[in-house]
Design a protein around this nucleic acid. Structure first.
Lengths: 325, 325
DNA sequence: TTGTAAGCGTTATCAA
DNA sequence: TTGATAACGCTTACAA
């Protein structure tokens, strides 16, 4: 491995002159420049970022903490992050929490040990302990961003899609399609998030009728346990708050000889490849996952550079109309 | 930030004693141990991995170079890699080449600058230049693994699924379903890879008839340009060498009122979530992407530790029967 | 059992 | 315009 000292010797200049030249802090004589360039080429010098990091006591590494990466929702966000970090010459660490069997505290220990420049949290964590953990990070003065869903603001920047707007958009669309009896179908959605959808419904609905709420529990059979209930309640529009669930419900409805859209419209919250693949193709609310990643990365960079940044970023969802609603 | 020196002072021991104690290179007096433990707790010491790396001239960072991460094929492999690296306390860098607008040479420069412990290449790169690049890495003595498809062996470990076996399995399955006129449908598949599928076909077929080969070009309309040709040739079994293409072709066939399986069976090469979502669900050849990632990580770790490793790993594909074939 | 001192590759300070 | 020196935090001969 060729070091600064090596090329210094080879070029008959001091190491610090070369260092300053390479970091363009000084102007050197044409002659010196030539000697340095030659030595670098001849010896094949590559700077050592680890030494730089130690010297400056900061790295160019940003970590993304994510439940799992083999999931289009998370990987789309991560790709957005990667795009921005790459443009600014930062490296991207990935820590898959579900996969690694690491506790949150262990992950954070890792972050400190590695002098991580900033941390982007994606996805939901075990609520109570998580808030404590993230507050610890802030205490250590590591820049942090949390991107996913609304949560009580705790002194770190938050990014999330406007779920009330998402709900309003979706419900208005269903109304437009002459669907009047709406059901929200979800899985494990905590109450405080569900309330945003109800709020969106109220905003979209002129009169005072209420939507049906249906929670799918683990191991439930959609055909046997859910569809009959939808029919009993004369539901003609389903707003499924989870894209994969929307796909599966659509399949079950088709299998039960219910016409999608004509009999029951299905609207998906979340718009990835799988909405396009589903038959019929799903009309979906796009929550802008890639944009969420991009903005998260921009905010973490602002923090790292001690520039101003938005404490809260709310993204506007939009609807993509296909066949199912 | 608390350093070794700080706790040394606080505990009235020398820094090197603590260092050796923490790395369990020596046994210390009970009393010393207690003092050290206390100091660490009171001052909240966290070791500095960057300094360690500089000292040892090696990092615990492995880089995955991948075209894009928001793709189930790549993210599944990456997740496998992440799992193994995490277990062995290595960190995972992701570099998305398609996304970053970085040339291969620039990426490799980055690897050297950051003292990357090892590099895992996933996916296809611009062939000619890529082989040159990867050979450079080997020259620099950075452990490298290439996981994707067969290529001329060039002195670095290779991992890929057995495509001949995949083809044989698939064709045998189609024969079993009484499909006799088989077409291979593909997109951008280079000839040397296509030949494996033909070889697999030969192995599965007793007589000497040949399959039809259909290449889908950019911008082609499956309904207008492909399906008529399949029908003209009395094709009753299609082996699609790209999962997404299999999904789209299935859609087009359904739209043309052709019964999947009964009229034309569709078999997909590649088995991710999207095969399950497709209607009808696709019978697929699973190429073991996660396992490919896992084995890649294991091999890179062996290399890093200067242990023995397999130069070539060929994974056995298997078939997952669903509805379409 | 513990401590001293040098050094990993880089850069900031100060001096020339 | 350049150079000597010390320092970032940690480890490792070598010495005690």
């Amino acid at each position: 491995m060729t070091t600064l000292k090596d090329i210094a010797k080879h070029a008959n200049v001091s190491a610090c002159t070369i260092s300053r030249y390479l970091n363009s802090n000084i102007v050197v004589k044409k002659e010196t420049e030539a000697k340095i360039q030659l030595a670098i080429k001849e010896l094949g010098y590559v700077t050592n970022v680890v030494a730089k990091s130690l010297k400056h006591m900061e790295t160019f590494n940003v970590a993304v903490i994510v439940p799992k990466i083999n999931n289009l929702y998370y990987s789309e966000m991560t790709s957005g992050i990667s795009q921005i970090l790459g443009k600014h010459h930062y490296n991207l660490y990935i820590y898959e929490v579900d996969n690694l069997n690491l506790s949150e505290d262990e992950v954070l220990q890792l972050m400190r040990e590695n002098m991580i420049a900033g941390i982007i949290f994606i996805g939901l964590f075990s609520d109570v302990s998580f808030k404590e953990t993230i507050r610890n990070v802030v205490e250590w003065n590591i820049p942090v961003v949390y991107a996913n869903r609304y949560m009580d603001y705790n002194g770190f920047p938050l990014l999330y899609p406007d779920l009330v707007k998402a709900s309003k958009l979706g419900v208005e669309h269903l109304f437009l399609k002459d669907k009047r009896r709406i059901a929200f179908v979800h899985k494990n959605l905590p109450d405080h998030l569900l309330s945003y959808f109800l709020e969106g419904y109220s905003q979209a609905s002129k009169d005072e009728n209420k939507p049906m709420i249906m929670e799918i529990e683990e191991g439930m059979d959609l055909s046997k346990d859910c569809i009959p209930k939808l029919l009993q309640n004369n539901i003609d529009g389903v707003f499924v708050l989870n894209e994969m669930l929307a796909v599966n419900l659509t399949k079950a409805l088709v299998q039960a000889d219910i016409r999608i859209l004509e009999d029951i419209a299905v609207l998906s919250l979340g718009n990835s490849l799988i909405s396009e693949i589903s038959t019929p193709e799903l009309t979906s609310i796009d929550l802008q996952n890639r944009e969420l990643g991009i903005r998260s990365a921009e905010i973490i960079l602002s923090q790292i550079r001690k520039e101003a940044f938005e404490p809260i970023t709310v993204l506007e969802p939009f609807i993509v109309e296909r066949r199912s609603a």
